[in-house]
């Protein structure tokens, strides 16, 4: 069979693609030894939909949020002075920024409410837009409702930041480590180029512990629990009090409730 140059190059090209694509497609080797050997911690807290109630009446005394500081220290959240590069999981906002719809210009909301700090964090929405848009499932929702970040998988496209209606997400514009004054050796840091946010302390819940902020708040203003369980403390609180939720009209069904 006579093969001309053109033909030869074609065959060679196809062969190269075939030879390289084969191994590339065989993505991950099966790890047989570890199949079926993983367990949940029996101490893990069990809930169908985790939620948080913030009693904002108790927040007035705190100029600085102790709970937020504890969270940031525990999770190795860097303190970056430039507000453009800031990373925040939980922080205080004024009423007009936390609830811009309810505080339109000239609105009469009362001096006391205006002064009151509002602790805001990821709302762990029932219908999270961030999860919807993530192109790699790096942001996903657990069965118990927690909206989680898989830092190993995030490509840093920041689609989730555009999608989040609450400004809950931060991007690592640079290596965060130089801005962590005291590392918590029990928890990882993040690296430049990934997005991060509050995860309701999923790893503590899985070990039977409450979120750091809930434990740290000296006023017990933050209450955590299963909103699907009518006997939980959070359910009783929202039953008893009128609560606000941020941007409810967007249909995200946020799971942080504010007692006014």
């Amino acid at each position: 069979m006579a093969v001309d140059r053109r033909e030869f190059i074609k065959i060679a090209g196809v062969s190269v693609i075939g030879l390289t694509l084969g191994p590339a497609l065989k993505l991950e080797e099966k790890v047989e030894a570890s199949e079926g050997k993983v367990r949940r911690d029996p101490k893990a807290l069990k809930g169908k939909r985790w939620a948080m109630v913030v009693d904002t009446r108790k927040c007035e005394k705190c100029k600085k949020c102790v709970a937020a500081e504890a969270c940031h220290a525990y999770h190795n959240v860097p303190k970056i002075p430039d507000p453009k590069r800031e990373i925040k999981w939980i922080w205080q906002e004024s009423f007009e920024h936390a609830f811009p719809h309810l505080a339109a210009e000239g609105e009469h909301i009362g001096e006391e409410i205006k002064r009151r700090p509002f602790v805001i964090l990821c709302n762990h929405c029932k219908h999270p837009p961030c999860v919807r848009v993530c192109p790699t499932k790096a942001t996903f929702q657990r069965e118990d409702g927690i909206v989680m970040m898989d830092m190993h998988r995030c490509i840093g496209c920041r689609f989730c930041m555009a999608a989040c209606p609450y400004g809950s997400r931060s991007f690592n514009w640079m290596d965060p480590r130089p801005y962590i004054t005291k590392e918590n050796p029990e928890y990882p840091t993040r690296t430049k180029g990934v997005v991060e946010k509050c995860d309701f302390c999923a790893e503590r819940i899985d070990q039977g512990l409450l979120p750091v902020c809930v434990e740290a708040c000296p006023e017990k203003a933050l209450v955590f629990g299963d909103i699907n369980d009518p006997n939980s403390e959070v359910s009783k609180l929202v039953e008893k009090h009128f609560t606000l939720r941020r941007k409810l009209e967007l249909g995200t069904d946020p799971q942080v409730y504010y007692i006014i």
């Binding site: 192109p135 998988r153 995030c154 490509i155 840093g156 991007f171 690592n172 430049k192 180029g193 990934v194």
Partner: peptide, 13 residues
């Protein structure tokens, strides 16, 4: 992209 080396995650997942 923040992590350009992981861009193929869009294909893998």
């Amino acid at each position: 992209l923040g992590r350009p080396m992981r861009v193929l995650n869009v294909v893998f997942h």
